[in-house]
Design a protein around this nucleic acid. Sequence first.
DNA 1: TTTAGCACTCATTTGATAGGAGTGCTAATT
DNA 2: AATTAGCACTCCTATCAAATGAGTGCTAAA
Lengths: 344, 344
Amino acid sequence: MSLDLRKEQVLEAIVISHIETAEPVSSRSIARKYNLGVSPATIRNEMADLEEIGLIRQPHTSAGRVPSQKGYRYYVDKLMKKTELTTREKKLIRAIFAKKVKVLADIIQCTLKAVAQLTDYLVFLSGPYFENDVLKKIKIIQLMPGKALLVIMAETGWVHSKAMDLPSDITADDLAYIELVLNHYFQGLSFTQITRTVLKDVYNELNRYRRTINHILEIMEVVLQEEMKENLYLGGTNRILRQPEYSDIEEVRKLMNFIEREENLRTILQDADPYRVTVKIGEEIKSEQASKYSAVTAAYNIGGNIVGTLGLLGPMRMDYARAMTVVEHITQVLSEALSEESFY
Amino acid sequence: MSLDLRKEQVLEAIVISHIETAEPVSSRSIARKYNLGVSPATIRNEMADLEEIGLIRQPHTSAGRVPSQKGYRYYVDKLMKKTELTTREKKLIRAIFAKKVKVLADIIQCTLKAVAQLTDYLVFLSGPYFENDVLKKIKIIQLMPGKALLVIMAETGWVHSKAMDLPSDITADDLAYIELVLNHYFQGLSFTQITRTVLKDVYNELNRYRRTINHILEIMEVVLQEEMKENLYLGGTNRILRQPEYSDIEEVRKLMNFIEREENLRTILQDADPYRVTVKIGEEIKSEQASKYSAVTAAYNIGGNIVGTLGLLGPMRMDYARAMTVVEHITQVLSEALSEESFY
DNA sequence: TTTAGCACTCATTTGATAGGAGTGCTAATT
DNA sequence: AATTAGCACTCCTATCAAATGAGTGCTAAA
């Protein structure tokens, strides 16, 4: 479906104006603000047509028009112009990320903070995960009697370690043997494969150390799951209250309810195209409760491998151009920050 | 200041009723619901007296009474009866904590979740910190060329480890030597002492490894700071929207603004008496913006050492008895859970 | 000392009205 | 054939007065 030029201009005017003011847009205000060189009456005619196609609608008979979900989609796909961040804003972002942060959690906090400074939407992101990371080596290092360190090294260079208690009758030789077996079974496997399969084989092989191996495998599982778990972080809850749609407390409650269920946000992130900025408008988000929201998402990477996704959630009347620019830029900065050095 | 019995009964009725309904309490409703054996007129007289002392006030001339900050304080100190959690609720808590959680972050999540199930107030807690934990031993373990693991063991049994990159020209002997020196200087010192002092001495002693030692000290600092940082966790933001005081969006904004500034919450936790459940009402919280809120806090411990504090924040019209019970019980469960085993 | 009774206050609800923004349609204009 | 001026019509919103009712304070009687 494609519209003639003037219809597009009218639609664009309606979308832009409504995004800005949150109010229905009247034919007169379009004639005034956007120089289309025609009278309100003409615009009204066009509006009637646009409404028939379903791109805009009227909240009630004597009101102006607001874009429909379809209208926003048309706008995003065909009319929207890309925007840029100001140099000031870019500087701001650099400044936030500039602090030497060595811990993953801090970088995530920086990200949330940066986005919150740039938009009044909800920010959420799935923490880096390494489902496909491949295990390079396992080490068990005895720290003192009854206490050892389990170290898991991955191909990507990430190292995970966790302390654990040992039965007192385990000797250094035992540990060395266990380490050998574990490496034999697990080396070269991806994290997913490890948790799914081979566990049983190992268990049998190391039968005589049952108590210890149980413990070790349990801890390995914890570590791996920790690593593979796509942690979800959320921010901007205060900011979004500035959006006029949330001057009604009921709407706020609904929104809070929606984001309270983590899987809602997870789904949005998972449904995103990993290779480009994705825009989901209203019912395009696969969740009944989300029919009034829109989400803009983009993936971020470490050294080129996609490891997580960042998203903005806001009312359907979202500044899509802005949101896309922000999401794109931030994921890029985030990727760089993560790729720069090895983290814990 | 002490009141005669009937005044106390009236005050108690007003507080309880207002906590329940969030509405001003009339003399008639007291006469009806609480059998004081007197007429509304008598109660009105008592109310006039109570108002004069400043324990209650009238929102406007023809309205009932609501407790004042002083009134709540009197109630909490002298009238309030302790409540108990139902066995059902206790079971619920057990269930939430029962899942095998090995990671600190998970336990915190459990805590937030449990409290959110039990009350409709904001929950927040300062994560366990170990300012006074004493360093037992440092180990540097080479994993592969250019990569080593820095392990910090504390007297409490907690073990922290972090991977780091090494200059390629460092030998195993070098590392052993560095380890020796570090232990020599740091062993037996508390984490606070380590970050504050001795760093310089070490730096001089290990001058010839400057590049490496810089790196190691930096990482040590990160680890220790991570450990000492009183992390702040927050939950229940949705739940508190159920409180009728937050059916006005402006109030919500103010509240969000208040909790957005972490130091506000930090201050509340720091001001708490570590040895008992603390109740701060209205202006007793040292923050201008908090004059309409109340907070109930209690500390939790690991093996008897206090390591953090948990708090509830709500409107002044808070169910103090309930809040205190919940806070007390949860901190206890949390302490047990944390003391049970060694975590990462 | 208590309480019935009543006048008084003031927030809230209700209903009616006016105003205004905006549309849709028709007929005139270009 | 396309545009537009003009006007009737719709429906939301603001305003105001009046009614309502909850609750008090005070006085006088019990």
